[in-house]
Design a protein around this nucleic acid. Sequence first.
RNA 1: GUGGCUGUAGCUCAAUUGGUAGAGUGUCGGACUGUGGAUCCGAAUGUUGUGGGUUCAAGCCCCACCAGCCACCCCA
Length: 411
Amino acid sequence: MISRIKGTEDTIEESWLWEWIEGRFKEVATNFGFTQIRTPTFEATELFDRGVGNETDIVQKEMYTFEDKGGRSITLRPEGTAPVMRAFIEHNLSSKGLPQKLFYYGPMFRYEKPQSGRLREFHQFGAELIGSALPIADVFVISMAIEMLNSVGLTNFKLKINSTGDEKCRPEYVKALRNYYRDLLPKLCDDCKVRYERNVLRLLDCKKDAQYAKDAPKITDYLCSDCKAHFETLKRYLDELDIQYEVDPSIVRGLDYYTRTVFEFKYPALGAQDAIGGGGRYDKLIEELGGSKTPSVGFAFGIERIILALKMENKVPEAKGIDVYVIAVEDAQRVESLKIAKALSKFFTVDVDIMGRNLKGQFSQASKENARFVIVIGEEEIKEGLYTIKNMKTGEQKRVRFSDIIEMVKI
RNA sequence: GUGGCUGUAGCUCAAUUGGUAGAGUGUCGGACUGUGGAUCCGAAUGUUGUGGGUUCAAGCCCCACCAGCCACCCCA
């Protein structure tokens, strides 16, 4: 037997749930004026090297990279923002006016050790608001994200925010952090010794050395006046919109392109993989990829984790059954039942037996498919030109004309 | 990538100190030749994750691999 690749999933009985979530998210995004962008699932490796950042874990150890037959280095996209910005630049979308509001949906790939809520192929729904440097843009995007979560019934999530500064103040902060950790270096875990060299910010969210992070210098004390003003305004707007949040200095996010605002939606009940979504501002990404300076902000949700959270909250809606099941009493009425089913399929979801089951078997099947109504077609029905319709919930049943069937099922 | 736990029917799980697999549920059929979800009866289904090894004998012990889960790492 050939089985699926480690860290991937087949979605069979739950396809409807996926479609439902995608539908709700698309609806909210569309109502907020976003339109969909579809980019390839693979890109030139260089895009992520430069976009996501060479020193990040994603680029260092998680990318699905291979050489194609033309000798090009290809990478299965590990995230959605860099590809969207590539497309934004490539199609000169800024010429169409700013802001550009784009959402995307699709599979992402990261070579990691799988766990529940962490797959090698997973799905993200993301949105990018391109062109505004104002804190109001951050709040716009955050409130849309919250609307999305609410639209599928999720409420027990926490919004955590932080500011990572910009190219002016972050180096100052990094310097201060280095100073602080220099003397502690021998006491730190091996990973942190590497982080000290590569990316000091990451020291802050190490779980083993959390004791030292407590007294470490805080980024918020080192923000330059512009970044500080941005952060303060953001918080004030959130307050005014009654959006609950928590400032969490340990949120630095694993992608290099973030500047100023970063945020995460946490769902603590999920355990170690508790981020159901995250995002932030990336004011320098577009110019780093060769475009002109265009400040932007965006976020992405992980669909698998949203589904886990929904299940945990018991918020998964009931799967809908079919509207009508058409039953033939005897073989002689099978063609007629198919004709009726075909006619009804123009209006409703409908099924008919093709397994040669007897009457009872067909009724069982109708129950199993959660049919709201059953149409019974036997010798008598054909003789009278009236069809028996049974409401499967109430058990009520009567003989009606075809046009009445449509009226009854419609309700 | 590191460490720990696990792997038996479609699903959830049994199987004394090693003695070549069983229940519930689901599926199918019948009780019930024009009526489902209830009840009763019956039937089918496994190379015990894969491959080696130890043993007279392995679901059980040992090794390797594969997969899942948990933690780390990191994130969605």
